[in-house]
Design a protein around this nucleic acid. Structure first.
Length: 582
DNA sequence: GCCGTTTTCGGCCCGACTGTTTTCAGTCG
């Protein structure tokens, strides 16, 4: 078993223990253990074989044994027995809003409820309301939660959440009672998939702000409304939460609600080590009274909070407990790439294959955006469903691109289109011969029709990475967020092959992909692999993906130096040529 | 289940909201 599989088992054990009514800290120990494994930068098999689980923070004797068993045998009797003792429907019930482990246990013990369906029936029969600790209200809330779950999967792509959040944030910003405001939560951390939208506002008149918030357009229902917070369900199915605090408390609330939960826990522990106590209202010089203003440390902004704890500032994108606490404490945080550093995109389509726009339209639009270059990398012939180009059409396209570039040059513009292809990685070869690839400025190699085995897909991508004509691998995992999982592939081996051959890896900035995953970039750059943030644009407005992709690159700790398409055109041309010399 | 320069036992991050309660448990973020 690899580390993802082992981590998934540990997480599930945590959930099952919760349902059994186990000590919540035991549950957390399993969740922590899973996160430790996910953050490992080398194969778990190696670590286990070399006995290096010993001494790893968060992995004690019990977890070490269980992990070792899972890695070496692929099974764990403890887990299998635990799983068999709990009906699978109970885990599903935990996903309902307002239903936690205690309630699930009670519903199961007292009513024999073992699935969402039987829970719904029990509610309709009025049995839930009659239970001790439940009532009419909780029964109807459960029915609502079941209906909500049926209507919407409660996870949303970043871009959809941004499109909902930005107009509301603008509205809040314009309200006279709002002093400061921001998004928070996973949206501010730029997670590729988010659960709900969080806003934090400072105001002297919270009631007015809350009333204004719940009256925003496109709200389907108000889920909760108190004196300091409110929750609404937007018509799009995304939940949005608002928290209102005083301006003095604002930096603390913003930090707190930005999370992640793991980052917050680490921050609190650091505060305790400094003899302080941190919560969403402030940083206090006492363990006794948590909200006494006289004991509050003054921090006008988030930077000041980190400074007071003896750390450098941590950008929101990095607050994932992925090493940022140690880096900030050592004041060695990287200077992250910014989307305005990007000079163009090296993987894009035109109406020659499955894109919408002509070469002329693309050139005009991208130079108006202030970009320096834009590669046209249409599909190769194997992607016939996408109208892939054969060698003859590709050579025609090379000439057409040259023509557009001559026009652009005649107008005195610095902008250039680059010729290229997104060549299919077939079973034994690339879809174009090397001599044709050599005629192109940019070659992206992508696996579009994966095989069923990890070994085969890995072999194919390693083959592509080893071809001197290939500049970069496109969307190396093939995942489509919330739609399709990654194909089976050993990305560690692929990263190693890219490192060995100087081949770059794309960070596909399409909001459906964000592939390579941000969690793997620290590992890739540590091995010297460069990143290219590509739009994979199929229409003009997809140029906006550069902003999304840059945010994901920041989550991966990437600096300007790590990202090839921050280079100006002439330097980029040299790098493209140099890559082929390797 | 993890962890320790106060501890090898007894802690483990913290507060708001909701509903069922009459002082609090459960859930959520």
């Amino acid at each position: 078993m690899d580390k993802e599989a082992v981590a998934a088992v540990l997480l599930e054990i945590g959930t099952l223990l919760e349902l059994k009514g186990e000590n919540p800290f035991k549950t957390r120990a399993y969740q922590n253990g899973a996160r430790v494994l996910e953050g490992l930068s080398e194969p778990l098999e190696t670590i286990v074989a070399e006995g290096r689980l010993e001494g790893m923070a968060g992995i004690g004797e019990a977890l070490r044994e269980k992990i070792t068993t899972l890695v070496t045998t692929g099974r764990l009797p403890y887990y299998e027995e635990l799983k068999a003792s709990i009906p699978p429907g109970l885990v599903e019930m935990l996903g309902l809003q307002g239903v936690g482990p205690k309630k699930v246990k009670k519903l199961h013990d007292e009513l024999g409820v073992d699935s969402i369906e039987s829970l719904e029936a029990a509610c309709q029969a009025g049995k839930v309301a009659a239970l001790d600790g439940f009532g009419e209200k909780s029964q109807s809330k459960i029915l609502e939660a079941i209906a909500f779950r049926r209507q919407f999967a409660s996870r949303h792509r970043l871009v959809d959440a941004l499109n909902e959040a930005e107009p509301i944030l603008e509205a809040l910003r314009g309200h006279p009672d709002v002093t400061r405001c921001s998004t928070a939560g996973s949206l501010r951390r730029w997670k590729e998939v988010i659960g709900d939208i969080d806003f934090v506002v400072s105001s002297r008149n919270p009631a007015a702000v809350i009333a204004f918030f719940v009256a925003q357009p496109r709200i389907a229902s108000v889920l909760a409304q108190g004196e300091t917070k409110a929750s609404v369900l937007l018509e799009s199915g995304i939940q949005a939460d608002l928290r209102v605090v005083s301006d003095r408390e604002y930096p603390f609330a913003l930090a707190y609600f930005t999370g992640s939960k793991e980052h917050n826990i680490a921050m609190r522990q650091r505060a305790i080590a400094e003899g302080l106590r941190l919560n969403e209202y402030g940083l206090f010089r006492s363990h006794e009274e948590t909200r006494d203003p006289a004991l509050r440390e003054e921090c006008p902004d988030e930077e000041a909070i980190y400074r007071r704890l003896g750390m450098g500032y941590v950008e929101p994108e990095l607050r994932e407990d992925h090493g940022e606490m140690a880096a900030a404490a050592a004041d060695s945080m990287p200077r992250l790439v910014q989307w305005t550093d990007l000079k163009g995109s090296l993987h894009n389509h035109s109406n020659w294959s499955d894109g919408r726009n002509s070469l002329e339209e693309i050139a005009e639009h991208m130079q108006e955006l202030g970009l320096s270059y834009w590669a046209i990398t249409d599909h190769s012939r194997a992607s016939f469903q996408a109208n892939g180009l054969d060698p003859k059409r590709l050579r025609e396209q090379i000439r057409a691109v040259g023509q557009v570039n001559r026009q652009v040059a005649d107008e005195g513009m610095d902008f250039r289109l680059l010729t290229g292809t997104e060549v299919d990685v077939l079973k034994e070869s690339l879809d174009f011969p090397d001599d044709l690839l050599a005629e192109l400025d940019v070659v992206v190699a992508s696996l579009h029709v994966p095989g069923s085995s990890e070994a085969e897909n890995t072999r194919r991508l390693v083959m592509a990475a080893s071809n001197p004509q290939v500049h970069m691998l496109g969307h190396p995992s093939g995942r489509l967020l919330l739609e399709r999982d990654a194909y089976k592939v050993n990305l560690d081996a692929v990263i190693d092959a890219c490192a060995a051959h100087g081949t770059w890896i794309e960070l596909n900035a399409s909001p459906y992909r964000f592939d390579l995953d941000w969690r793997l970039w620290q590992r890739a750059t540590a091995k010297g692999v460069k990143c290219v943030i590509n739009c994979d644009a199929h229409r003009l407005e997809h140029a906006g993906f550069l902003r999304l992709g840059a945010g994901i690159a920041r989550k991966g700790w990437l600096t300007k130096r790590d990202v090839v398409n921050t280079l100006p055109l002439e330097t980029l041309r040299r790098e493209l040529a140099r890559k082929r010399g390797k």
